[in-house]
Simulated scan of single mutants.
Amino acid sequence: MKTFLTAAALGLTLAGSIAATAAEAGTRSRSVSAQGAYGHGYNRSRAVTRQPGSTSVNRDIQTNSGRGVSSSRSANWGDGSYQGGASHTTNNGASWGRSTSAVRNDDGSVNAVTTRTRPDGSTGTVTRETSPY
């Protein structure tokens, strides 16, 4: 019985390490379609791409009635810096999003700037600086 449990634990550990490796790099995508009575329904898709130092996600949902939204998010990091953001666009043309850039300075402080764009086209920017202490 002890040998069986050890082998099972080893198998779970191996499966977990293979899954972790697969999730670390590459692209995974999924599409779902749900259709109901009287023409109601939607189609949804999602694609995730991961690489060392970057990731991106694209999503789309469209209803049978013509409504929908497409979204994308991305992030890149490395060497003490980060850049990321998101954008969303509806079928009627409304769009909004945000972007962030951050850098770690030699003294350990961090400077970051986030800009948000609203559906009406207006923008807002927030600048932050954190000290290392």
Rank of each mutant, 00 (worst) to 15 (best):
L5A: 07
A8C: 15
A8Y: 12
A8Q: 06
G11C: 06
G11E: 03
L12W: 05
L12T: 08
L12V: 08
T13W: 10
L14P: 02
A15L: 12
A15K: 08
S17T: 07
A23K: 02
A23P: 03
E24K: 06
E24T: 05
R28V: 12
R28L: 05
S29P: 11
R30M: 08
V32G: 00
V32D: 09
S33F: 15
S33D: 13
S33H: 12
A34C: 01
Y38N: 15
G39E: 05
H40T: 09
G41R: 08
G41T: 11
Y42D: 02
N43F: 04
N43M: 10
R44M: 13
S45A: 15
Q51E: 14
S54H: 04
T55L: 14
T55W: 05
N58Q: 10
N58G: 02
R59F: 04
D60H: 10
I61C: 07
Q62I: 15
N64C: 14
S65P: 07
R67S: 15
G68R: 02
V69E: 03
S70V: 02
S72R: 11
R73E: 13
R73A: 10
N76A: 12
N76V: 07
W77H: 13
G78V: 03
G78T: 14
G78N: 04
D79A: 09
S81F: 06
Y82W: 09
Q83K: 10
G84T: 04
G84S: 04
T89K: 01
T89S: 11
T89D: 05
N92G: 04
W96H: 00
G97P: 09
T100C: 03
S101F: 09
V103I: 05
R104M: 13
N105H: 13
G108P: 13
G108M: 01
V110A: 03
N111A: 14
A112W: 02
R116T: 11
R118N: 15
D120F: 13
S122T: 10
S122M: 11
T127A: 14
R128N: 05
E129F: 00
S131I: 01
S131R: 13
Y133K: 08
Y133E: 02
